[in-house]
Simulated assay, not measured.
Amino acid sequence: MAMAMAASSLGLSFSTETNFRALEKPTCIAPVFKASSAFAVAKPIFILHKGRLSSSGTTIIPQAAPVADVEDGNQAETDTVPTPVVIIDQDSDPDATVVEITFGDRLGTLIDTMNALKNLGLNVVKAKVYMDASGKHNKFSITKADTGRKVEDPELLEAIRLTILNNMIQYHPESSAQLALGAAFGLMPPKEQVDVDIATHITISNDGPDRSLLYVETADRPGLLVDLVKIITDINITVESGEFDTEGLLAKAKFHVSYKGSAIIKPLQLVLVNSLRYFLRRPSTEESSF
């Protein structure tokens, strides 16, 4: 019912008062925490500390024990390191969350990544690998183990994303120089930081009479997906479904949004764009944050 009321595909149930903190050994508990009336109460899988989930805290990322070699057993360096890409797609499959991972031809079978996702209470129900000009694509469908349904909690979606990126850094350390997460967890942090003012682009277009398409491109950081959804829903705009892409140091989000069952009118579009732009340029972060 909450999904039908507020976010028919993403579900997007989240707490506005939680913050993942880095711990050496994540402990799995499921406290109940506050959620807006439009959303169902989520069951987080980490210890949550009071405060806002955003880039002000580092998200706990479940991971397997480190290994000396990369997943496919090949650590050979090349002149050009491909751009890591992680896509979380909520649109293409009504019954599962589709994840696609690309890192040139360097990815192995990603067995460890799938095991790490299982530690989040998820099942990988199907997977396939295909090649094209951009490299090897590992694509798999994920459902929640307890319900058999797609992931609907933005905090869990963010945990999925960061888990995948962390495993990529762990098994392909050369990728850390091209990922925002590499600044916190990688052996080789990015050589250049993205200028948020330059990198941020926001557009809204009509997507039929009942909804609009919101596109956001900005500098990546942990907690970004949850923060974007919170900003949107704080002004009573419904997030119905979407796609969240991590492309190197950038994050690109596409959300189908509506207001009271209709496409967003121009004045409200302006409010949404200004709210997002203000937050992305001036996030509520601590000086020592990621």
Rank of each mutant, 00 (worst) to 15 (best):
T83M: 09
G121N: 04
T109V: 11
T109G: 13
S134Y: 02
V125F: 03
V129K: 12
G108V: 13
D89K: 01
E100F: 02
E100Y: 00
K118A: 15
F103P: 04
D72P: 09
M114E: 13
G121V: 07
V81W: 06
I88G: 02
T109D: 15
V86A: 00
P94V: 10
D89Q: 06
E71K: 04
T109Q: 15
V124A: 05
L110H: 10
I111R: 14
L120W: 08
T78D: 13
E100N: 03
E77D: 02
F103Q: 13
D93M: 12
I101N: 02
T83V: 13
T113S: 08
G108D: 08
S134T: 07
T97K: 01
V98D: 03
A116D: 11
D112A: 14
Q75E: 14
M114Y: 03
V86C: 04
D95P: 00
N119Q: 01
D132M: 08
D105Y: 02
T102E: 04
R106M: 10
N74G: 07
K128A: 03
A116K: 08
T78Y: 07
G121I: 04
T83Y: 01
M114K: 12
T78I: 13
R106L: 08
R106C: 04
S92K: 06
F103N: 02
L120R: 08
V81M: 05
A116M: 06
I88F: 01
E77Q: 00
A133F: 15
I88Q: 05
Q75K: 14
T78C: 03
T83Q: 09
G108P: 09
T80N: 14
N119F: 06
D91V: 13
I88E: 11
P84G: 08
Q75A: 15
D132E: 15
P84V: 02
D95I: 02
K126Q: 14
V124T: 10
V85F: 05
D91P: 01
K128Q: 11
R106T: 04
Y130I: 07
A96E: 10
I111N: 11
T97C: 07
T80H: 15
F103I: 06
T80C: 11
V86G: 02
F103Y: 12
I87L: 09
A96Q: 04
V129P: 05
T113K: 06
S134V: 02
G104V: 02
T109R: 13
T102G: 03
T78M: 07
A116Q: 14
R106G: 06
L117W: 04
V98L: 09
I87D: 07
A133T: 13
N119W: 00
T102W: 00
K126N: 14
A133D: 15
M131H: 11
I88N: 11
V85P: 01
D95Q: 05
A116R: 12
N119L: 11
P94S: 13
V81L: 05
D72V: 06
M131N: 11
D105A: 08
D112E: 09
G73R: 10
G121S: 13
Q90T: 13
L117Y: 05
K118T: 09
I101P: 06
L107R: 11
L122A: 00
V98K: 09
D95N: 11
G121Q: 06
A96W: 09
V86H: 01
